Simulated assay, not measured.
Amino acid sequence: MTDELLAIEGLGVDLPSGGWLPSRGRPAINILSGVTLDLKRGETLGLVGESGSGKTTLARAVLGLQPISAGTLRFDGAPLESGSDFRAIRRRTALMFQDAAASLSPRMSVGEAVVEPFVIHRAPAGDRRAKALDLLAEVGLPPEMAARYPHELSGGQARRVGVARALALKPALVIADEPTAGLDVSVQAEILNLMADLKDRHGLSYLIITHNLALIRHVADRIAVLYLGRLVETGPTAEIFARPRHPYTQSLIAAEPRPDPRLRRADLAIRGEVPGILRRPTGCEFHTRCPIARDICRSTAPALHTIGTGHFARCHFPETTKKGG
């Protein structure tokens, strides 16, 4: 058995340019290109980037919910190529949705929602009511919660129900899309502590998609940074926060709110708007917003440079970038 649970190699995703209408010969829109990542057993990998960077598309591709146009996927050493391959691994994976309340059917009680994975996958659950109560107890919810409906839940309670449902089939991998979105700071801490406790208790691996760098700084073992569907930097969390090597990563870290405005890094602020994917910049796609862009950045796409053990950055000048802290 290898330590590698999930392996993504050269992943590409294209979408039709015509939407619901026929494309009429127009080229497909490239969403993801050349993404190579791995996730080890018991590891938490944070996937960060601005809206539209392709984070959720990557998660959907991993689960077979989004067809891929290039590259390969492997889960626990087995290739994911056909519909049956993805159906098989969905029993070993779970997805925590960004809007926990909206992901619950208003017609189903909490108890019914929690055991719904057993119904979908036709898995034996024994006494389903007892199983629902056990799962709710594991995420810190009382038994009477099983009779409630989604509109009766607070944001934190709905999030805990989502965690309980994700745990139902004892997954190896949990993909959490913005797991603390819309929650008060104190409730965010409770959810993160719960996820950490469940990870240790069940040996879970997490792929966490988030904009919240303060969150990912404290929970992730490694970070992967996406920009316009390209992986621009990946490496150990502590190392990336101590010395990020890609200007985009530096800018994201510099944009974190600081209690003292004198500590803000104006020289690392991201300039301009995210370019449209229909008109991608030539060369390095970040050069239109990069504070250190040079002529080569405008004409030539950079290669992925090895910075250190497990640390990579896609930049022409990874050794000359400024510290983002």
Rank of each mutant, 00 (worst) to 15 (best):
G276D: 12
G52E: 08
K323P: 14
G12T: 03
A242Q: 11
Q66D: 08
S17C: 13
Q250D: 11
P142M: 14
P275W: 14
Q157S: 05
T320V: 12
G52K: 08
T300I: 15
E9Q: 07
G156P: 00
L215V: 12
T72P: 02
A100D: 08
G64C: 00
D221S: 08
S33N: 04
D221C: 00
G46A: 05
G83P: 11
D99Y: 11
G140N: 11
L73Y: 04
R128E: 04
G49P: 05
K322W: 15
T180H: 00
G156C: 07
A125P: 04
V219Q: 03
G162S: 12
M1K: 15
L226F: 09
L136K: 02
E144P: 02
E233V: 09
T93N: 09
L95Y: 15
H218S: 10
G34F: 01
F286V: 06
A102S: 11
R265K: 12
S82F: 10
D134A: 14
L32Q: 01
F317H: 12
M195F: 06
E152Q: 13
P257T: 11
H121S: 01
A164K: 03
P67C: 12
C284T: 10
A100H: 06
R24L: 15
G12K: 05
V139G: 03
V139W: 02
A94N: 09
L173V: 10
G126K: 13
A123W: 15
R165V: 13
I253G: 04
I208G: 06
A214P: 02
Q98N: 09
I68E: 08
L226W: 07
T282P: 11
G42T: 04
R74C: 00
G126F: 08
A130T: 07
E152S: 06
E285M: 14
A101Q: 10
T56G: 00
L133C: 10
D177K: 04
R201P: 08
T44Q: 03
E9H: 10
R122G: 10
K199D: 03
T56N: 09
I68H: 00
L278P: 12
E138T: 13
D295P: 03
R265H: 09
I29T: 11
V187I: 14
F317Y: 13
R60I: 04
R26S: 15
P124R: 14
R314V: 07
A113Q: 03
R91K: 15
S82E: 06
A61H: 07
S186I: 10
A59V: 07
P16F: 15
P259M: 13
L135V: 08
P142H: 15
L135R: 00
R262E: 01
A196T: 01
